[in-house]
Simulated assay, not measured.
Amino acid sequence: MRGKGRVGIAKDGDATVRLGAASITRGDSLKACDAWLPPACIISDGPYGLGKYPGEPVSPDGLAEFYAPHAAAWARRAEPFTTLWFWNSEIGWAKSHPALELHGWQYEETVVWDKGIAHIAGNVNSRTIRGLPVVTELAVRYTRRATLQTEGGQELSLKEWVRAEWLRSGLPMNQSNAACGVANAATRKYLTQDHVWYFPPGSALVAMARWCTQRGRPTSRPYFSLDGKTAPAAEAWDRMRAKWTHVHALTNVWREPPVHGSERVKALHGTGYLHANQKPLALMERQILAATDAGDVVWEPFGGLCSATVAAVRHGRKAHAAELNPEFFEAAVVRVRHEIETLPLTRTA
Score class of each variant (00 low, 15 high):
Ile9Glu: 09
Asp12Glu: 07
Gly13Cys: 01
Val17Ala: 07
Arg18Asn: 06
Arg18Gly: 03
Leu19Gln: 01
Gly20Cys: 00
Ser23Phe: 01
Asp28Phe: 08
Leu30Phe: 05
Ala32Pro: 00
Ala35Ser: 09
Ile42Gly: 01
Ile43Asn: 03
Gly46Asn: 03
Leu50Val: 11
Leu50Ile: 10
Gly51Cys: 11
Gly51Leu: 12
Gly55Arg: 06
Glu56Phe: 00
Pro57Met: 02
Pro57Leu: 01
Gly62Ile: 05
Leu63Pro: 10
Leu63Tyr: 10
Ala64Pro: 01
Glu65Asp: 13
Phe66Glu: 08
Phe66Gln: 09
Tyr67Cys: 02
Ala68His: 09
Pro69Val: 14
Ala71Thr: 11
Ala73Asp: 02
Pro80Phe: 06
Phe81His: 12
Phe81Ser: 14
Leu84Ala: 12
Phe86Val: 11
Ser89Gln: 08
Ile91Asp: 15
Glu101Met: 03
Glu101Gln: 14
Glu101Asn: 12
Leu102Ser: 07
Tyr107Ala: 05
Glu108Arg: 15
Val112Tyr: 12
Trp113Ile: 13
Trp113Thr: 13
Gly116Ala: 08
Ala118Cys: 03
Ala118Phe: 06
Asn123Met: 14
Thr128His: 11
Pro133Tyr: 07
Thr136Trp: 03
Glu137Phe: 11
Leu138Gln: 14
Ala139Glu: 07
Val140Lys: 15
Arg141Trp: 00
Thr143Leu: 06
Arg144Met: 04
Arg144Phe: 01
Ala146Ile: 11
Ala146Phe: 04
Glu151Pro: 02
Leu156His: 12
Leu158Gln: 10
Glu160Asp: 13
Trp161Val: 12
Val162Cys: 11
Arg163Trp: 02
Glu165Met: 01
Trp166Arg: 03
Leu167Ala: 13
Arg168Asp: 04
Ser169Glu: 02
Gly170Asp: 05
Leu171Ile: 05
Asn174Trp: 11
Asn177Met: 04
Asn184Met: 03
Asn184Val: 04
Asn184Arg: 15
Ala186Met: 04
Thr187Ser: 11
Thr187Pro: 00
Arg188Met: 07
Tyr190Asp: 12
Leu191Gly: 01
Leu191Val: 06
Trp197Asp: 13
Trp197Ser: 04
Val206Ser: 06
Ala209Pro: 04
Trp211Phe: 15
Thr213Gln: 05
Thr213Phe: 01
Thr219Gly: 02
Arg221Tyr: 07
Tyr223Met: 07
Phe224Met: 14
Thr230Gly: 09
Ala231Met: 13
Ala231Asp: 13
Pro232Arg: 06
Ala234Leu: 04
Ala234Ile: 08
Ala234Gln: 06
Glu235Ser: 15
Ala236Leu: 12
Met240Gly: 09
Arg241Tyr: 14
Ala242Tyr: 10
Thr245Glu: 13
His246Gln: 12
Leu250Ile: 13
Thr251Gln: 13
Asn252Thr: 15
Val259Leu: 14
Val259Lys: 10
Leu268Cys: 00
Gly272Arg: 00
Tyr273Trp: 00
Asn277Ser: 15
Gln278Pro: 12
Gln278Asp: 09
Leu281Pro: 06
Ala282Asn: 09
Ala282Ile: 07
Leu283Thr: 09
Asp293Asn: 13
Val297Asn: 03
Val298Ser: 02
Glu300Arg: 10
Gly303Glu: 05
Ser307Pro: 04
Ser307Leu: 02
Ala308Ile: 04
Thr309His: 05
Ala311Glu: 06
Ala322Tyr: 08
Ala322Gly: 09
Pro326Lys: 12
Glu327Val: 00
Val333Pro: 08
Arg337Trp: 02
Glu339Asn: 06
Glu339Arg: 13
Glu341Val: 14
Thr342Gly: 10
Thr342Leu: 15
Leu345Asn: 12
Leu345Thr: 12
Leu345Arg: 15
Thr348Phe: 14
